[in-house]
C-alpha cells in the first residue's frame, strides 16, 4: 500500500511518519502532484497557522492537487481546518472540501489553546471502530470546526465541536492520532484499512 504524507510548511511529519512506521507502513513524504495522485492513501497533517500554510500550498499548486484526490484522505489538526471552506485564523480561505468554517475558541474562562487529552463521543464507524465512547485523545488547537451533518465524533471544551468529520473520500480529525497512544494508533489503523 502506498501511503503519502503531504510535505508542506506546517506538517508535524516526523511524528506521523514514526507512528506509521510502528504500524508497519513506510510512508512516502512528498509534495509532488503525481505521487499524491497515484497513492492509495493520503495523510495531510498539520500544526501551525492557517494563512501561511494555505499560501504555501497555493504557491506549489498543492491546493488543486488536494481537491482533485479521490482516494481516502485524512486531515489531522490544522490539516482538518485547511480542508474546510474557511478559517477565522487570519480570515483564511481554505480548500473548501468540507463545508465548514474553523472558528476561534472564545476564551473567557477557558485556557486557549485547547491543549491536552479530552474525551470524544458520538463515535461513528468505520473510523472509530474498536474505540469506546469517552475515550481520550490528544488535542492542541486554538480554532475548532463546528458540528454538522458530516460530524463523526464530537468533543466539548466550552463549545461542542467536531472531533472528526467524514465527507466523501475525506476524513478529518481535530486531535492528533499520532500522539494519542493506543487509541490514536487504532484510528490510523482503521484509516489504513479503508
Amino acid at each position: 500500500m502506498k501511503v503519502v504524507v503531504v510535505k508542506y510548511n506546517a506538517g508535524n511529519i516526523a511524528s506521523v511518519a514514526n507512528t506509521l512506521n510502528r504500524l508497519g507502513v513506510e510512508p512516502i513524504i512528498s509534495d509532488d502532484a503525481e505521487t499524491l495522485r497515484t497513492s492509495d492513501k493520503v495523510i495531510f497533517p498539520g500544526v501551525g497557522e492557517a494563512s501561511s500554510a494555505m499560501n504555501y500550498l497555493r504557491e506549489r499548486g498543492l491546493d488543486v492537487v488536494l481537491k482533485s484526490l479521490t482516494q481516502p484522505v485524512m486531515g489531522i489538526c490544522l490539516g482538518m481546518q485547511l480542508l474546510c471552506a474557511s478559517s477565522e485564523e487570519n480570515e483564511t480561505e481554505c480548500l473548501g472540501i468540507l463545508p465548514y468554517r474553523a472558528r476561534k475558541f472564545p476564551g473567557g474562562g477557558l485556557k486557549v489553546p485547547h491543549m491536552g487529552w479530552n474525551t470524544v463521543s458520538d463515535l461513528q464507524q468505520p473510523l472509530f471502530e474498536g474505540i469506546a465512547s469517552e475515550e481520550y485523545f490528544y488535542f492542541v488547537h486554538g480554532y475548532y470546526v463546528e458540528t454538522g451533518k458530516q460530524t463523526i465524533a464530537i468533543c466539548t471544551y466550552g463549545e461542542t465541536f467536531s472531533a472528526a468529520i467524514h465527507h466523501a473520500n475525506c476524513y478529518a480529525v481535530q486531535f492528533h492520532p499520532e500522539k494519542s497512544g493506543i487509541a490514536g494508533k487504532r484510528i490510523l489503523e482503521n484509516f489504513l484499512r479503508l
Binding site: S15, N18, Y138, K179
Partner: peptide, 8 residues
C-alpha cells in the same frame, strides 16, 4: 525516543 513513544 520519538520513534518509540506515541504521546506528546
Amino acid at each position: 525516543i520519538a520513534r518509540k513513544i506515541n504521546i506528546p
